[in-house]
Amino acid sequence: MTEPPILRIENLSTRYGAVRALRSVNMTVRRGEICAVLGANGAGKTTLLRTVSGLQPPDPGSRVLVDGTDVTRLPAEAMVRHGVAHVPEGGGVIAELTVEENMRLGGLWRAGRRERGAKAAEMFELFPPLAERRTRHAGTLSGGERQMLAIGRALMARPRVLLLDEPSLGLAPLITRRIMRLLQDLRAGTGLTVVLVEQNAAGALSVTDHGLVLSQGAVVASGSSGELLADDRMRHAYLGF
């Protein structure tokens, strides 16, 4: 029997007032895959993640399934219980809380203080710079450290699917490469599935298995990362390289 995809999106549409931001998007991601969502500014990449994670209400007729369970109309706070963690653009770390408090927040929905403590220790081991700054306010961290904290907080929930929005935004190439390598390590180590929104299409496709390209809220191309990289017309028209 074939295992159901960990994330299936069917006919997903949404709008901001009169503006249609997503138009019947379909997408399937299998367990352990890293999938890129690409496109120009305003293409609908961030909206796609926000609609999947429950921050943006979908139009009627849309469907989002996680491991076969329909989660289409669940609010954002319930999605984490279904194994979906979302790191929004900019990370969304809470500047006024300490690094440790931000980290703890990600695992709060799980019962068991000991389990949360063990997971936090694991995260600090994964991100040593954060361990050194655990008592400092998150607002004092560098951009790279904040992104690490945002990813660490999301991982505290032990997600099956990680939605990651522009993790390279404003970061030095070296830090970006580290984050991309981390995603690959997590996939290899834990079977984590990642949906990665990126402006830097070439960088994203170098670490992902497949991708889809959005333009004006609609899917204009999808395929393996190799296929997308090899398609000169697509690269020039939509990916800018």
Partner: peptide
């Protein structure tokens, strides 16, 4: 307390709190 952390997160950054499973 976890409740206090949830309350502070909900007050400071509702969206991040929701994404962490907090019922704001």
């Amino acid at each position: 307390t976890p409740l206090g952390l949830r309350m502070r997160a909900a007050a400071l950054h509702p969206e991040s709190a929701r994404l962490s499973g907090v019922r704001v």
